[in-house]
Design a binder for these strands. Structure first.
Length: 173
DNA sequence: GACAGATGAAGGA
DNA sequence: TCCTTCATCTGTC
């Protein structure tokens, strides 16, 4: 059965992101498209999609998310993060993302370093896959994971975003 | 079970 | 240096 998600827009100086909440926490975050609006799969442009009443708890998470996102986009550490809903994700993916959450602004790790940090030094390609499976970019800073030698590597939401986010944190590739 | 992938390292030119 | 090749590990279909 499919879990119902509440979708709420997050307006930032970089466009309107779309946050998806389950009853457990923030489940996904969509980047704005080139026009600064939410991506086409988000069914609204800057409006709450769900007509039904939004639970107070989700509104509180949304405030935290908005503040955290704005901080991150300003290259500052987010003070608080909403609970993240990683339901259905594997142990391996969660381990990779936990390592990323520990990375502060301006700090980067290579895919190999992340693999070593979770005790699987040879699972470098798998770390790349786990990064790609990250549905909460920016807040789970997969953009801070670079390829060996300081090369940019890849980014599921587009390398432009990766460069942009890194530049905000003072990292120029 | 096969295949693909956001890598890394080694070897050769 | 730069490029190519291959080993490695995990997730997905």
């Amino acid at each position: 059965m499919k879990q119902e998600l509440v979708e709420l827009p997050v307006t930032t100086g970089d466009g309107i992101f779309l946050a998806h909440y389950s009853d457990k926490g923030l489940a996904a975050l969509d980047f704005p498209n080139a026009d600064g609006l939410v991506a086409p799969n988000g069914k609204a442009n800057g409006r709450a999609v769900n007509s039904k009443q939004i639970p107070l708890q989700i509104l509180r998470w949304h405030r935290t998310t908005t503040a955290a996102l704005k901080k991150m986009l300003a290259g500052q550490p987010a003070k608080d993060l909403p609970p993240l809903d990683w339901t259905g994700k594997t142990e391996f993916q969660q381990a990779v993302w936990r390592v990323m959450l520990k990375l502060g602004p301006g700090k980067t790790k290579s895919y190999g370093e992340v693999a070593r940090a979770i005790g699987r030094p040879k699972a470098v390609r798998a770390v790349g896959s786990a990064c790609g499976a990250n549905s909460i970019p920016v807040l789970v800073p997969c953009h801070r994971v670079l390829a060996a030698g300081g090369k940019i590597g890849g980014f599921g939401s587009g390398l432009d975003w990766k460069r942009r986010l890194l530049a905000k944190e003072g990292i120029n590739l």
